[in-house]
């Protein structure tokens, strides 16, 4: 087994056995079940209620835990000093950092698969049949959003302590979710400078790119690749940027 793979497996096991894992999965399932119950309360569009609440529940739960784990992937080993035992070795700091990211990503993918399984169960329960391609993509993009948030949290974890990094990650995520919505509501009477600023932020920092909920409806199975590519490209750019900066900062960090 290579050093890099071994370290990734270790990171994955730490998260998989983390005390947060089971409660998070349970919360995700409860939200999905609540969505199922709530969809029956609506007069019409019960599928929309199901998708809106269910997928949004998965999204928020997974996003929050991705940031928590991303920051803790760095903060915990620094706190318990186990980082010393791993870095005082021939393996490079870059390898250690990337293996933490890979371990985190695998754990988030596992969580995504569990949520997808729950979702499939709900679909069958409501006689909607198997998940469509579009629904698969919607959940896939959610997992990608968690991975991007994980890389952002990892970067912040290398730069600051646990609470500061966590707070900053939440603030940045919230900005990415809200900025495009605010930009869309700004009319011609809005202050031009403010409008320009909000639009600029919405263009470069738009977490709604991971959101396919609006396009989900029963029977819809139309995945526009031209629509997906820019979303994937943006995710790739943010991932690459965060990981490069994290590696650069981590390379220079003193383990005091």
């Amino acid at each position: 087994m290579t050093a890099w793979w071994s370290l990734s497996k270790e990171a994955f096991l730490i998260l998989r056995r983390d005390r947060v894992f089971t409660p998070v999965v349970t919360v995700g399932i409860i939200v999905a079940l609540f969505a199922n119950i709530a969809s029956n309360w609506g007069i019409d569009s019960y599928d929309k209620i199901l998708f809106d609440i269910g997928i949004a529940g998965f999204r928020m739960t997974g996003g929050a835990v991705a940031m928590l784990w991303g920051v803790r992937m760095i903060a915990d080993p620094i706190k318990d000093r186990s980082i010393e035992l791993r870095l005082a070795s021939p393996s490079a700091r870059f390898s250690w950092l990337m293996s933490r990211f890979v371990g985190l990503s695998f754990c988030l993918i596992l969580m995504g698969l569990i949520f997808a399984g729950v979702w499939q169960g709900l679909m069958l329960l409501n006689h909607f049949g198997s998940m469509t391609n579009l629904q698969n993509w919607a959940i896939g993009l959610l997992v990608l959003e968690w991975i991007v948030l994980g890389s952002l949290a990892l970067l912040l974890g290398t730069l600051a302590g646990l609470s500061t990094a966590l707070f900053s990650a939440f603030a940045l995520w919230l900005t990415g979710l809200v900025a495009p919505l605010v930009a869309a509501t700004m009319g011609p009477n809005s202050d031009p400078f403010q409008k320009q600023v909000v639009e600029f932020i919405a263009n470069i920092w738009n977490f709604q790119r991971f959101n396919l909920i609006d396009q989900l409806e029963i029977g819809s199975n139309h995945v526009l690749l031209n629509d997906l590519y820019p979303r994937l490209e943006w995710a790739g750019c943010v991932l690459a940027g965060c990981l490069t900066l994290a590696a650069w900062a981590f390379q220079k960090k003193d383990m005091t």
Binding site: E10, L13, I14, D76, P77, D80, R81, S82, E84, L85
Partner: peptide, 8 residues
């Protein structure tokens, strides 16, 4: 002072 991760 270093401690190994408790879940391993």
């Amino acid at each position: 002072t270093a401690r190994f991760p408790g879940t391993l």
